[in-house]
Design a protein around this nucleic acid. Structure first.
Lengths: 361, 361
DNA sequence: GTGAAAGCGCTAACAC
DNA sequence: GTGTTAGCGCTTTCAC
C-alpha cells in the first residue's frame, strides 16, 4: 500500500474516538454500556429504539451521550448473526450498463428496499451461468431475506439452481410453474401506443413489429389490435411490418412506409422510431405534419431529444423494481398465477399530430 | 403473505436437504462435522481450503460428502463476525440510471471486486446528503473493507462525514487534501479528439466547449491547444465556441459554424455532436464530406447509431471502476498527489474524413 | 493430522 | 425499569 494509502484511516489507526475506534480496537456496545453505566441490554434497546422497552429518560440520555462520545457504530454482522437473518435483499441482474433499463430497475428496488429498512445486495451476471451461481451463493451466504432475479428486457427465463433456496421473485422476466414475477403490461402498452394515434384521428396506422421473438413482439401487437377493434378499425396485414429493433431496422421499414397511405406509425421502440425519422426526412416528409410517429421504451436520451421530441410509451422499469421488492417482502400480493403486470404509461411529446387531409406517405 | 408467497421456499419449510436446511433449521458447520465424524475445526479447514492445514485425504473426502449430502452453505455472517471484517467493498454512487456512465463504473468495480474475492455493496444516493450518510452508516455497520465514492460526471466533491471512518478512494471525482482519486485524463482526451482531425489533414478546427464549469471544460480545451501547438497551429479564439452541453446547444453552435471556414469540429460531447449533425443537415452540409465531426463520451446509443456513426473519444468509466477497487485494495498505487488519471481512448467511426478542398462551412 | 475451547459483538429470554 | 445470561455459527489458537 502507498504512503497515501497508509495515511488514510485504516483499521488499526490510533484514530480519535470520533472515528469509531479507540487505540486500535473497535468500540463495542459493551464499551458504551460501561461508559453509560448501564447494561448492554439497555444500550441495545436504546440503539434499536425498541418499542415496548421501558428505559428511564436518564439512562436513555446517558447511553446517547456515550454513543456520541465514543463514536460508536453498531456492528450489523453481529446483529445479523444472532437474529439468524440479515436485512439484505439480493438483486441479481443480467446487465447493468447496457441500457439504462436495468439501472432503473435497480434504482426502484433500492429505493423501496431502503424505505422498508432493507439493503440491496446487487450482483451483475452478464447472463453468465457461472457468475449467477456465484452471486446466488454469495447472497445465500449472507442470509438474504430473499432474492430478486431480473433481466434488462422482458423475457422468459429458466431459474438458476440455488434461487429456490431463498424466497424469490422475478422482475421483468417470468418462468413456468407459478413463480411470482413482476412484468410490464405489454398488451396495455400496445394499446396505449395505438390510442395516441387514434385519439388524433388517425385511421390508417402502420405497426412496426420486431423480428425478435419475445413477449413484446407477441403482446404489443395484440394491444394494437384491441385498440383498433375498439375504434371499429381492422388491422391491414400489409401495415404490420416486421423489422430489426434498431435504427437500421427503422430506417428500412420507414422507407417501405412510403406509398402505403399511412398517416401514423407505431414503432417497436424508440430506436426504430429514430430510424423512421431518418427515412422520412430523406423522403422529404416531416413529423408530425406528414406522418405521426409513436415510439416505445421512453429511452430518455433518444426520445426527449429527437427533432421533434418523440411521443412514446414508457416501460415501467423503476416501478418494476419497486413492486418486485414489495411482492418479495409480502407488502403486496401477486394475482393468482403469479404474474403482476405493471402498466406502461404513454408519454406525450411532439411527434403525434392530427393526420394531414391528403394522404402523405 | 399471499398463498403464492407461502408456497414458495420460505425459511421454515421442510425442504429436503438439497435446499440447505433440514426440518426447518439451517444446516450448520456443526451438522457437517457430526455427519462426517470430524471436528468443526477440520470442516472449517476443508471448506476454506486452508493452506498449511494438514487434513487426511479420508477426512477431507468425508467432509466433502457430508457438505454435499446436507446441502450445507457456509454462513458468511458468522465468519465475518469472528474475523472482524467482511469481504464487502462499499460503492456509493450519486446516480445509477441517469446515464449509462455510473452503470459502467459499477460494472467495472464489481468485476474487479469479484476477481479479487470481494463483494460490492452498492448504494445510490441521488446526490442527497441524507441518503449519503445513511448509506455510509450501513456500509460501516457491515464492516466493509473500504469505500469507493463515485460520481457520474467528473467533478470536485466535498467528502461526506463518515467516509473517513473507512479506507476510501474517489472515483470520477476528486477532493482537496490528497485524497486518493481515480479520474479520466481530460487533457489527453482533448488531445485525442483533436488529433483525430489533425491526422486527416484538417487545420481549421472549431472547438465546441461546454458552458458548465468543470474539469472537462477546463482541461479538454487544454489538450486541444496542446495538439494544435504540436501540429504548429494556433487556436483561433473565434473557433472556440461555448454552448450548452446538449443537442440544443450543439444545434445552435452548429448554425454558427457556417461561414467560419471550418472543416472539422470537436464537440464537447456526443449529444452536442448530434445537434451539430442536425444543424449541418439543415444547411445542406454532409458529414464528413463537408465537415468532419468528433464527439466525446462514446455514448453508445448515440454515437454508434448516428448517421454517419460518430467518431468520438471514450470516457473510461468501466476502467475507472476497475482502478478504483485496485487502488482501494492496495493492488495498485496512486501517483504522488493522489490523482490517478486514466486515458480516454479515441473511437474511430465514420464522421471524420479528409477535409474538402474547398472550404465548405 | 485432528480436536477442544474460547470467543467475535450482539440480541433476547427471563429474572429481579 | 434494568441487568444477567446464554448463545447465534464460525474461526483460530493451542494441545495432543
Amino acid at each position: 500500500m502507498s504512503e497515501v494509502h497508509g495515511a488514510t484511516a485504516v483499521p488499526g489507526d490510533a484514530t480519535p474516538s470520533a472515528a469509531g475506534r479507540v487505540g486500535g480496537a473497535r468500540v463495542t456496545l459493551r464499551d458504551v454500556s460501561r461508559l453509560a453505566g448501564v447494561s448492554t441490554t439497555t444500550v441495545s434497546h436504546v440503539i434499536n429504539n425498541k418499542v415496548g422497552a421501558r428505559i428511564g429518560d436518564d439512562a436513555r440520555r446517558r447511553v446517547r451521550e456515550a454513543v456520541e462520545a465514543l463514536g460508536y457504530r453498531p456492528n450489523a454482522t453481529a446483529a445479523n448473526l444472532v437474529r439468524g437473518q440479515s436485512s439484505f435483499i439480493g438483486l441479481v441482474a443480467d446487465s447493468i450498463a447496457t441500457t439504462p433499463f436495468a439501472g432503473q430497475i435497480i434504482r426502484g428496488a433500492q429505493d423501496e428496499a431502503w424505505r422498508l429498512g432493507y439493503t440491496l445486495l446487487i450482483a451483475n451476471t452478464e447472463d453468465n451461468a457461472n457468475a449467477e451461481a456465484e452471486a446466488l451463493g454469495m447472497m445465500l451466504a449472507h442470509q438474504v431475506q430473499g432474492i430478486l432475479f431480473s433481466t434488462w428486457y422482458h423475457r422468459e427465463v429458466t431459474l438458476p439452481a440455488g434461487l429456490s433456496e431463498a424466497d424469490h421473485v422475478l422482475v421483468n422476466c417470468y418462468a413456468t410453474g407459478g413463480v411470482r414475477a413482476v412484468v410490464p403490461d405489454e398488451v396495455g402498452g400496445g394499446r396505449a401506443a395505438t390510442e395516441l394515434l387514434l385519439a388524433q384521428g388517425h385511421r390508417r396506422i402502420a405497426f412496426l413489429n420486431t423480428t425478435t421473438p419475445s413477449p413484446a413482439r407477441k403482446r404489443r401487437i395484440e394491444g394494437h389490435r384491441q385498440a383498433m377493434a375498439a375504434a371499429g378499425l381492422e388491422v391491414d396485414p400489409e401495415l404490420v411490418i416486421d423489422t430489426a429493433p434498431d435504427q437500421e431496422g427503422g430506417f428500412v421499414a420507414g422507407q417501405r412506409l412510403a406509398g402505403l397511405g399511412v398517416t401514423g406509425v407505431c414503432c417497436h421502440n424508440d430506436r426504430v422510431a429514430m430510424g423512421v425519422y431518418d427515412a422520412l426526412r430523406e423522403r422529404g416528409l416531416t413529423v408530425p405534419e406528414d406522418v405521426s410517429v409513436v415510439g416505445f421504451d421512453n429511452q430518455e436520451v433518444i426520445a426527449a431529444h429527437l427533432r421533434p421530441p418523440l411521443s412514446t410509451v414508457a416501460l415501467p422499469h423503476y416501478e418494476l423494481g419497486v413492486r418486485g421488492v414489495r411482492v418479495l417482502m409480502g407488502v403486496e400480493e401477486c394475482p393468482a398465477g403469479g404474474l403482476l403486470r405493471v402498466p406502461c404509461p404513454p408519454v406525450v411529446r411532439a411527434s403525434v399530430g392530427p393526420p394531414a387531409t391528403r394522404t402523405s406517405a
